[in-house]
Design a protein around this nucleic acid. Sequence first.
DNA 1: TTGTACGCGTTATCAT
DNA 2: ATGATAACGCGTACAA
Lengths: 335, 335
Amino acid sequence: MNRNRITIADVAAAAGVSLMTVSRAMNDRDGINPETRTRILKIAEELGYHPSQLARGLVTRQTSTLGLVMPDVANPFFAQIARGAEDIAYQHGYNLFLINTAEDAQREKDALRSLLEKEIEGAVLCSSRLSQEEMLPYLNSLPAVVLVNRDLSEPNPNVATLNVNDSGGTELAVRYLVEHKRKKIALIAGPENSVSSKRRLLGFEEGCRQNGLGCSAAQIVHGSPTTQGGEEAALRLFEQLPDVDAVIAFNDLMAVGAMRACLQSGRSIPKQVAVIGADDIPLAALTNPSLTTLHVDLTALGEKAMTALLQLINGNGEPPEQIVVQPELLLRQSA
Amino acid sequence: MNRNRITIADVAAAAGVSLMTVSRAMNDRDGINPETRTRILKIAEELGYHPSQLARGLVTRQTSTLGLVMPDVANPFFAQIARGAEDIAYQHGYNLFLINTAEDAQREKDALRSLLEKEIEGAVLCSSRLSQEEMLPYLNSLPAVVLVNRDLSEPNPNVATLNVNDSGGTELAVRYLVEHKRKKIALIAGPENSVSSKRRLLGFEEGCRQNGLGCSAAQIVHGSPTTQGGEEAALRLFEQLPDVDAVIAFNDLMAVGAMRACLQSGRSIPKQVAVIGADDIPLAALTNPSLTTLHVDLTALGEKAMTALLQLINGNGEPPEQIVVQPELLLRQSA
DNA sequence: TTGTACGCGTTATCAT
DNA sequence: ATGATAACGCGTACAA
């Protein structure tokens, strides 16, 4: 079937020209007779010739290949980002390696090493679980990186960042709840090693302080960033703090889990407990009651990240951007 | 920063040995003194040397790279498959190119051509929108392909298939509804050019026939495979057939859309209208009422597809598998 | 155990 | 407008 790959030499032989003439024809370079060009292209087509990007990349040092590293593409938050990022990459003629790290630092390092060996031209790194020290060698070895949901300890000429203002968004949510007479507000935080969870925690504490609320440890529970994690965390919360009347969750999945916990424990939403999520994944509009959440356009986020990466790669050496996206409180039924 | 890539020659020079000795050390081949091996590995590490898979692939003809082509990774159906597939690929040391076709045949062809040029070792092609004739040249040019949700017109030694029994599943749903006294059952089908939608349609007709039901054109509406598509299609259906008492949807997203349409038009679920979805995406368990659906383990589906692909690539020349997965009717609240 | 020569498929350079 | 030759970085075959 395809035991012998057709090479440029086969086309050259069939056309009775040299390798270079075929190369010029394929790459639309000038310095070639238009007639012979079309003749060669036709022969290449007939032979089913496809130029090897391996061989080409070896000499041009360009692979037209990028990496996209994220904890879990099955999480709608990341899936939407992936879609936006791949769309932009495609429009610019790049292919994208998808990597799931499963929140595992070792797997993330393995992935980055393999991408390095594949000679990608850049990568979008989402919600990395690596420490700054672990991350640094990869940031320096890769030609360009965009960090999503992650800060950079010190500026790096080939690293841009794209962050959602998690703390500000959470403050927004706290203020709204206070203004609507909620007295006992709790935070369902995400994984302890998640940077954006830490930021939400800061925003929560700041929001409580600004609004004259105490926020004891009893008002904060952690969980894995899934529906089930949110459900379990909420149940723990209800034990510690039975009279809680508002819950802010790390993300929409956990918020939905919290809503399920409310249902189980006979708490009505939003009457007894207000629930606010974050990210506005498609699910948020579809639950009953529908979920009030901190809206972010995730597909646009992916597009922005990829655009920033391409800017870094093909740009005119302008300093990398440090983008911050502001979430908006999108009022639905749950709060 | 990284203007000069470190090559095997740099390591060899630093270690005072030949290129081959370094190569042997890196690839863990025998015929090398253990001491010099560890010494070389240490130097390579210090220099930050990463072997180029481009150069290696050019000589070994192996790129450790696969492709995953699907309409839309933001669709949870495909996102789950992607997760399962990438997990298996990672376990076997492969990297995965992710491609979204956006249901666009031209973009799908572009993608396949680019993957061919990248010299991938195989691809998983999900819900292809290409005709058999359009697909054939790619199936013959690629070393190995697994077709998901798609049949093959004639057997091909390097193409396996993995299908959900859509028609059988739909028959199951029809039978269940009939047994539960539903009299006017409708189908909300997906895109006209979707193979699995066609199969659901066949199963629907067969189910109606077996159960002594007529199924006129009025009982079938089409829509795009999204929540909104399902909502619009259901509203059209309710106009044509106001007394419909059961709806089977192409997928869960459309089923959720149909549930919203019921809400809008004041129809209670499941009292007045029973709703059955398909695929059992995570959302299905979270709606209110929760969605009765044709359950398929999607992550496992992705794992199976990738396993079949690796079998095709590294196997002992056994004929490709034609896998069929049986969906189960998972009863929740909506029917 | 280690090294040398060559080839993988392509493009860049310099010629004609 | 076209061609010959030398790279790109690495592995294979064979020689030392």
